[in-house]
Amino acid sequence: MSATPPAPAPGLGSWKSRLLSHEMLLFYVLIALWLFFYFAGTTVNRRGVTVGFGTLDRQFDILRHSCEIGLLALALTPIIITAGIDLSVGSLLGLCAILFGQLWHDGGLPIPVAAGLTLVIGALAGGLNAVLITALRIPPLIVTLGTYSLFRGLAEALTRGSITYTDFPASFLYLGQERWLGLPTQAWIFFAVAIVVGVLVHRTTFGRAFRTIGFSPEGARYAGIPVARRLALAYVLAGLIAAIAAIIYTARLGQAKADAGTGYELFAITAVVLGGTSIFGGKGSVIGTLLGVAAIAVLKNGLACLPVVMRMNAAEEMSGLLTGALLLFALSAGVVPQLWSGFRQRASAT
């Protein structure tokens, strides 16, 4: 091996392009946002206690609340790299939460067994998406729009719209509400999943296949890549991760109900796209997704700490608005340099 020159990391060129990569730009924005909220969103109350964005408790809280959407974003990253989409992950989170509660409460199963079965069910639900997409060749958008309603409807039917499962044992709630080795317990699971997905996407032949399919499904087929099997893997994995998110969600809130995770899929897609993964497939990274998740979380929670926003009581609205603005900015930031160089070429040509 010593004869071959060292291989540069895949997809990265010189240090200059590395510093200007989408991920790095997003990282600078994230730091700037964080610093802004650190100075503008931290206050000292009448009793002399520091409150707001700048406290460690608040930072951990942000991390705790980001884990579920973060997991869904990790689930969506490989799928979007294949130029697919999965709108059903939020609904599947709800369905898995209900099934987990039922297995434990009504089925009388121990928590670990119920959790294990929930993961299997999540993977099977992902498998349903996969079969419809690969065997019946229905576009992913349509398939998962259908299962988006199907999974949520099932969750509501199983609970008749009213049952909520509560009274989980403290040992289970530890997963969602306590800290382990200094960090919120679920954050460890989130990081573990991030590493698994990151390795899968960046360091294995599966990730290569996802990228190839994303750029050119026909080209992948002509190269002998088992396109259907690789796509199926991405969707099954997404179902599995959605089930993990469901269990964490239940442990954080201490209750399992049918509307769990409503609208999460859109936050997750936003995080993935903000992180630089192309909705047209091929391009994308797990680091980018993590930065996207972090940016959305900091923006949302930081705004809630700003005195001016607190007085207006408009944190939700403001965070929606600014997330949208950030997303559009991030997407156009990739296009502007191209437009600029195209303009310069035309200018120099005449």
Partner: peptide
């Protein structure tokens, strides 16, 4: 261009 080579990927891939 459609089937022989994936144009967006590096030569190595």
């Amino acid at each position: 261009r459609r089937h022989g080579v994936v144009l967006d990927l590096p030569i190595a891939h």
